[in-house]
C-alpha cells in the first residue's frame, strides 16, 4: 500500500519524488481492458436502470461565448424537467455554466437548488480562466471566489497544463491548494472542487496518472478529464485510468474521490460503457452524483430518445426532445 503524504508535509521535492515513484501505465493493457469492458451488452430492465442513472449523473452544460441569461434559464428548465412528455424522468445532477451565469442559474433553480443526492440540482461553475487556465493565480482565485459567492456548489477548475508539462508540478499543486481554499464559504463549508486535467493536452497516460494523483493530493474532490474544448476529450481508457487512481486512493486513505468524464460522450451507448467501467473498477457505490458525473450537453437528448423508445416500444425522433 502506498503511503499518502499529508498536504502540509509536502514539498516540491517530496511531491516530485512521490509522482515519479508512480508506476508507468501499461497503455496496451489499459486500452484492451477499456475496449473489453465496452463490449458488455446491457438490455431491458438493466438498460432502463442505466438510462435513469445516466440522467441523474449528468452535469448539463453550456459553456459558450454566446451564452445568454435566457439560454441558461432554458438549460435549467431542461435540467428540472428533461422530458415534458414523461414527468417520471429524473432530474439531472447539476447545471454547469460560466462563473458570470451562476447567479442566473441559482435564481432559475429556486427551491430546486440543492444537493443532487437529495433529488435537487446543483450549480457548477467553471473557473480559473477556463478553458486555458492561462492567467495569474490571483485572477484564478478571484474567479473562483466570485462564483462561490454567487452560489455555486461546485467549482470546475483547470490545471495549468503548461506548468505540468514543463515539469513544474509544485506550481500546479499549489494552485489547486489555493483554489481549494478559495472554495471555502463564510460558514466554513466549501464548494466541491473538480479538477480538470485536460487529458487531451497531457499527451501520455503516465502524465494522466501523475496528474490524477497530484490533484487528489492537493485536495480535489473530483478529478475531471477535460474541458470539452480540446480534442480528444473524455475517452474510455483515460477514464478507466483515472478510476484506477481513485480506487487506489480509496484503498490508501479510505476517502472517496469523484470522477467526471466530460466532452465527446454523445450517445447512450457510450455513456453505458462508462457506467460499466465505473462499476467494474471502483464499484457500483460510485454511481451516485457526488462520486461520478458526465459533463455533457447533447448526451441528454439521446438518453431521452432511448428512454422514450423503452417506454413506448417504438423509435423516437429528435422532434420529441427540446432543441438545445
Amino acid at each position: 500500500m502506498r503511503s499518502i503524504p499529508a498536504v502540509s508535509d509536502l514539498t516540491a521535492e517530496s511531491l516530485a519524488d512521490f509522482l515519479r515513484a508512480l508506476p508507468g501505465v501499461d497503455a496496451v493493457g489499459l486500452e484492451a481492458r477499456a475496449a473489453d469492458l465496452g463490449t458488455r451488452s446491457i438490455k431491458t430492465s438493466s438498460k432502463a436502470w442505466a438510462i435513469d442513472t445516466i440522467i441523474k449523473l449528468i452535469d448539463l452544460t453550456t459553456l459558450e461565448g454566446a451564452d445568454t441569461p435566457g439560454k441558461v434559464r432554458t438549460l435549467v428548465a431542461k435540467a428540472l424537467v428533461p422530458d415534458a412528455g414523461d414527468l417520471s424522468t429524473p432530474t439531472v445532477a447539476a447545471v454547469c455554466v460560466y462563473g458570470d451565469m451562476v447567479a442566473t442559474a441559482v435564481e432559475a433553480l429556486g427551491d430546486m437548488h440543492g444537493d443532487p443526492d437529495q433529488g435537487k440540482v446543483s450549480v457548477a461553475a467553471v473557473a480559473t480562466a477556463f478553458p486555458s487556465g492561462r492567467s495569474s493565480l490571483a485572477i484564478k482565485i478571484a474567479d473562483t471566489q466570485e462564483a462561490v459567492a454567487a452560489g455555486a456548489d461546485e467549482i470546475d477548475m483547470v490545471i495549468d497544463r503548461g506548468a505540468f508539462l514543463s515539469g513544474d508540478w509544485w506550481t500546479v499543486f499549489q494552485q489547486i491548494v489555493a483554489v481549494k481554499e478559495a472554495c471555502r464559504r463564510a460558514d466554513g463549508t466549501h464548494a466541491h472542487l473538480k479538477v480538470i486535467l485536460e487529458t487531451g493536452e497531457l499527451v501520455t497516460y503516465d502524465n494522466v496518472r501523475k496528474a490524477s494523483w497530484l490533484a487528489m493530493l492537493a485536495g480535489g474532490d473530483f478529478i475531471k478529464t477535460s474541458t470539452g474544448k480540446v480534442a480528444p476529450a473524455a475517452t474510455l481508457p483515460v477514464t478507466l485510468l483515472m478510476l484506477e487512481a481513485v480506487r487506489d486512493w480509496y484503498a490508501a486513505t479510505g476517502q472517496r474521490i469523484g470522477v467526471k468524464p466530460a466532452g465527446g460522450i454523445k450517445t447512450t451507448k457510450d455513456a453505458i460503457k462508462y457506467l460499466v467501467v465505473v462499476a467494474e473498477t471502483v464499484g457500483e457505490e460510485w454511481l451516485v452524483p457526488h462520486l461520478f458525473r458526465f459533463g455533457a450537453s447533447s448526451l441528454l437528448n439521446d438518453v431521452l430518445l432511448q428512454r422514450q423508445k423503452l417506454a413506448s416500444g417504438h423509435y423516437s425522433s429528435a422532434d420529441y426532445v427540446t432543441l438545445d
Binding site: G313, H314, Y315, S317, A318, D319, Y320
Partner: peptide, 8 residues
Amino acid sequence: PWMASHAD
C-alpha cells in the same frame, strides 16, 4: 411495423 412506428 418498425418503420411505420418509427417517429423519425
